[in-house]
Structures are given as structure tokens and as C-alpha cells.
Computed example of a mutant assay.
Amino acid sequence: MCVRCLQQGRYVPATVVDHIIPHRGNLALMWDESNWQALCKPCHDKKTWTEDKNPVYTY
């Protein structure tokens, strides 16, 4: 189930594995399973669009 939809009391199947903290090429974050969450495509697209619009880079 999509974790964001569940927070709103809706039961929507998850179709995407999302990175909670965007990895932006950081392989440790990319493969860290504790950084993964299940989302439906609409929630993933909205989250990604917001993050891409306001990127935070940590080098």
C-alpha cells in the first residue's frame, strides 16, 4: 500500500519504490533499504516534482 495514501486513510496499491531522501547519485542512499518507501505513482510523481523543483544537495 502507498504509505502517503494510508496516512490519509486511503488504501491505494503502491506501484513505485521511492527514496525517502533523494539519493542524487549517492550510492549509499540509493541502496539503503531504510531509505525506501512504497508509493503509488501519483504520490511519487508529486513528491519527485516538489523535490526536483527545490533540490537540496549534500556533498
Rank of each mutant, 00 (worst) to 15 (best):
N35Q: 04
D18G: 09
T15H: 06
I21D: 03
D52V: 03
P55M: 12
N26Y: 02
Y57W: 12
V16M: 04
H23A: 15
W49C: 02
K41M: 07
P42Q: 13
P22H: 09
P55F: 07
G25W: 04
E51H: 04
P13M: 10
V56S: 08
C2G: 04
Q37P: 01
D52Y: 04
R4C: 06
G25Y: 02
R4E: 06
V16K: 07
K46M: 06
V56W: 01
W31Q: 06
P22T: 09
T58A: 10
A14M: 05
K41F: 10
V56T: 14
Q7Y: 06
Q8T: 09
D18F: 05
V12W: 06
D32N: 14
W49Q: 11
S34W: 03
V12D: 00
R10M: 00
T50K: 14
K53A: 09
T15Y: 00
C40I: 07
A28E: 11
Q8M: 07
D52P: 00
N26I: 14
D32A: 13
A28N: 07
R4T: 10
C40E: 07
H23T: 04
G9Y: 09
K46A: 13
C40M: 08
V17W: 00
V12R: 14
M30Y: 08
P13G: 09
I20T: 07
V3L: 08
G25M: 04
D45I: 13
H44Q: 14
P42H: 12
W31K: 06
D45F: 03
G9N: 12
L39D: 08
M30W: 05
H44W: 09
N35T: 13
H44F: 05
L39V: 14
D18Q: 03
M1N: 06
Y59E: 05
T48H: 07
T58D: 02
K47C: 00
K47R: 12
D52K: 15
E33Q: 13
M1A: 12
P42G: 10
Q7S: 14
C40Y: 06
V12G: 03
C5N: 08
R4V: 13
Q37H: 03
W49L: 11
L27R: 15
H19D: 08
G9S: 03
W31P: 00
A14L: 05
P55N: 11
C43E: 01
L29N: 04
R10A: 08
W36M: 03
I21L: 04
S34N: 11
T48R: 10
R24M: 01
